[in-house]
Design a protein around this nucleic acid. Structure first.
Lengths: 133, 133, 133, 133
DNA sequence: TTTT
DNA sequence: TTTT
């Protein structure tokens, strides 16, 4: 009845853009979120959380999100079930984003390339109806 | 850096209570959260989300949570990695609760048993330091 | 850059429906949210939070929300400034809802009237673009 | 029964530190949160939201928070009522923080002063029991 | 009294 | 496969 998750973390890699068979745009990325404690050995741990974005949000994520950028992700936690090749039931957890914001300044583009600063703090939010799955 | 999830859904089964080797109490349960849409075939779908609670919160969850009850769960999404028997890397997603509240009235106890109404709307919240993992 | 509030509480009165000059529907209501503690005198306290909903959400809130119902409200906190009749600057805080859900069963309608159960757990969510102010 | 707010915005001024009569530390600050739209005249608007932090959190906020810094604030919305000098009932809205994080790097200290970078991304979270009001 |  |  209610499912809301809010994450702030860094992209572990550049987002990947793909298209479904009927042409819907989808972007996937992984966000590393440091845990709120250190282990007894004094080490930091992180959760690596898969995020999926659809349509216009996918395109914006793909354009502005790069490995290392600090992102705020808002969405819902989705658990997908499937059967693997060995006929075993598996589950996949991912956050279906409806809002992504980049909180740091983009990295200086390589070799003098122009930077588009307009994304800093840009609001990218989608209606639930724009999320196909 | 920030990891917050808020769920409202129903317990798919009674919580399970266990103890770690050093005696820490831990409760696990699964919450079914209906998705915010119906499929093209008009079917409702749900995400079945594993929840883990520690210490005092585990005990309260175990006492007041029963299959079918409507629960609000607040916590963080944790992704644990492990290697299975076939030496394959697997991931488990679960919500580490720091706050659980039951939003409906408890089911009438069987056979005239006394009901403890005190849990209805009770605030059960734990400090991050009370969560061992 | 980010402003999200989630409340669960009870309506202190039936919602009020009005229309702006250009015909936009707007509903206002107050939600009582018990505080997470009792005072030293053992008394419960509550925050009485004004909520405003626009357009289609306003109509649904008006139809299904009645005094005493348990509601989940999601939105953003808005602080409006104005000058009162004595030329003093005043501030008003209100939650602009983009999602309202009723978590309890509706009260039995008076005098044998039919009940519409369809609202129980219904998802009512609006796009940011449907919120005029 | 549930009251959670999450804000990201910039401090409009340095936090103010005070002490209650019984010696409890309290910090107040205002966070400017830009609204998710521009007006028809193309202007950006912001909500100026008062935030209050207690005890250890107050001290940390006071130490690391300066005018202009980007902060994430998590807490609950509190509406306090009081009667003013003209015997009129007034209401004050403020966020009681239980978690504050600074998301940008601190400003370079003036005149070669040493910078303490340790706060960047530091987790500052308090137990509900540490919040006196 | 308002931040970038 | 993991980010700062």
């Amino acid at each position: 009845m209610f499912n809301r998750i809010i994450l702030i973390g860094r992209l572990t890699r550049d987002p990947e853009l793909r298209y479904t068979q009927n042409g819907t745009t989808v972007a996937t990325m992984t966000v590393a979120v440091n845990r709120p404690y250190t282990t007894k050995e004094g080490e930091k741990e992180a959760d690596f959380i898969d995020v999926i974005a659809w349509n216009k949000l996918a395109e914006i994520v793909n354009e502005y999100g790069q490995k290392g950028r600090l992102a705020l992700v808002e969405g819902r936690l989705q658990i997908r079930s499937y059967t693997d090749k060995e006929e075993k039931k598996r589950k996949v957890a991912e956050v279906v984003a409806n809002n992504v914001r980049f909180l740091d300044k983009p990295k200086q583009a390589e070799s003098g390339e122009e930077i588009d600063w307009s994304d800093f703090g840009t609001e990218i939010e989608v209606d639930e109806e724009d999320i196909p799955f």
